[in-house]
């Protein structure tokens, strides 16, 4: 390096080179750690899809299981999952959203509301199997709903509730406080403020949170397996309304558990295909939530 004397200060010395090497090494090490979670996931998903390929077609979705569940499709489980998801969210979304409105817009910072916050956090941490025990004790036996879609959906509803409360609160909190004050200053009531300014501007976040719970409710097994979901139920192929609400039903998650652990001699690709359908459901729901979020963020009004 034949530069002027003033540049000598910035010439690479062995120490500097070592530092640069360290720098690059650090980056690669952490990158590898991130990749260590992502790459296996993609490999596994790819493997599942390949193994499932022989069964992945529309017929598989619409057909009922045959020959003691060793052949056929997954229709009764698919439609059962749809029932459970919709009923549970129809219960938990309104309660969760209103609860979040209370906590974010009405609640003052006193011990009582701190207890409520604590309860929400605790509810979010209750293991799914304990939810199952609760559903069994409360809905199946105490409320006398029996083993039914209602019991299972209510159990799922309570399980999804805290997450909906948390995501809705986050969405509400993102609306600037100055908007609320401006409304109060012109004599609007709390509810008028919420209705005309707070909710319209947080609805995207609220919806995203609720949609994400669709995939959670669809994937849960433990809370429904003791409250209203059975191994097998005979229904018509492609029937859209096969279940009454006071009956038991099948569900995809439970079906996957059953055919992969309890039933011998299942056609090889069927469990894989069931797992792939469940995964596809989750991916679609998440993609929908993400695109909704991106779309609505692009239209954000302030």
């Amino acid at each position: 390096m034949n530069s002027a004397a003033g540049h000598v200060l910035f010439v690479e010395t062995p120490a500097v080179r070592r530092k640069l090497r360290q720098e690059a090494l650090a980056k690669w090490v952490f990158c590898a750690m991130a990749a260590a979670m992502v790459v296996p996931l993609l490999l596994i998903v790819g493997y599942l899809v390949v193994r499932a390929a022989p069964s992945l077609n529309l017929e598989f979705l619409l057909e009922v299981p045959k020959r003691g569940m060793t052949e056929g499709g997954i229709w009764p489980a698919l439609i059962g999952t749809i029932y459970l998801v919709f009923i549970s969210l129809a219960v938990s979304a309104p309660i969760g959203i209103l609860a979040a409105i209370y906590l974010n817009e009405y609640a003052r910072d006193n011990w009582f509301n701190r207890v409520i916050n604590l309860a929400v956090i605790n509810l979010a941490g209750v293991p799914s199997i304990v939810h199952a025990l609760f559903g069994l004790g409360a809905f199946v036996y105490a409320a006398k709903f029996g083993y039914s879609i209602i019991s299972a959906s209510l159990t799922l509803a309570i399980m999804t509730l805290p997450v909906i409360i948390a995501s809705t609160r986050e969405a509400l909190a993102s609306v600037p406080q100055s908007f609320r004050e401006a409304c109060w200053n012109v004599g609007a009531t709390r509810w008028q403020t919420i209705k005309s300014v707070v909710l319209p501007n947080s609805i995207s976040g609220i919806l995203t949170g609720v949609i994400l719970q669709v995939s959670r409710a669809a994937g849960e097994t433990a809370p429904v397996m003791f409250t209203g979901v059975v191994f097998f139920k005979s229904i018509e192929r492609g029937d859209l309304f096969p279940y009454y609400l006071n009956e038991q039903c099948m569900a995809l998650s439970m079906h996957l558990y059953t055919i992969s652990t309890q039933v011998p001699g299942v056609k090889e690709s069927i469990p894989y295909a069931t797992a792939v359908v469940l995964l596809a459901l989750v991916v679609m729901v998440n993609a929908a939530a993400i695109s909704l979020r991106v779309y609505l963020r692009s239209r954000q009004k302030w």
């Binding site: 908007f179 401006a182 200053n185 012109v186």
Partner: peptide, 10 residues
């Protein structure tokens, strides 16, 4: 009431 920072509601 007019606040210090302008608040156009969305």
């Amino acid at each position: 009431m007019v606040a210090p920072l302008p608040v156009g509601l969305p």
